[in-house]
């Protein structure tokens, strides 16, 4: 019975599919939302999905290198959030709204 086997036996593919679903949700957020902060949150969602797949491969191959990559991704995510939020604040101070269509006015 493959169906019951798929439900009752959790393998690597379950975690990978969960990661793919989370990544797609984040991508939909980036494409569909207009608020800059929600866009940054969606990017964090995608990075988390990537982290899940790194940890899954690390667990199922018995190596720790994947978890090292998760450290790097977390650092990059924190740095990106800091810079993105600083940009959001500077946009909000000028236009009183956090919308991606104001990004074109940031030049110069």
């Amino acid at each position: 019975m493959p169906e019951t086997n798929m439900i009752t036996t959790i393998g690597a593919e379950h975690y990978l599919v969960l990661s793919a679903i989370l990544f797609s949700i984040g991508m939909a957020g980036v494409l569909l939302r207009r608020n800059l902060i929600v866009l940054l949150m969606s990017i964090e969602l995608m990075l988390n999905a990537v982290n899940i797949s790194f940890v899954t491969f690390s667990y199922y191959s018995g190596k720790v290198e994947g978890q090292i990559m998760v450290f790097f991704v977390m650092t990059i995510a924190a740095a990106e959030a800091a810079v993105g939020l600083a940009l959001a604040v500077s946009i909000f101070k000028r236009f009183k709204e956090v919308n991606i269509r104001f990004f074109e006015h940031l030049k110069g």
């Binding site: 940054l40 982290n51 978890q67 959030a81 939020l85």
Partner: peptide
């Protein structure tokens, strides 16, 4: 997935620092 240390780091860094940054902004 038995990545206990990463789970702790995830809670501290993401659910702590990054989320506080987002909510503060």
């Amino acid at each position: 997935l038995q990545a206990y240390f990463l789970a702790g780091v995830q809670i501290i860094v993401y659910a702590g620092a990054v989320m506080v940054l987002f909510v503060m902004v």
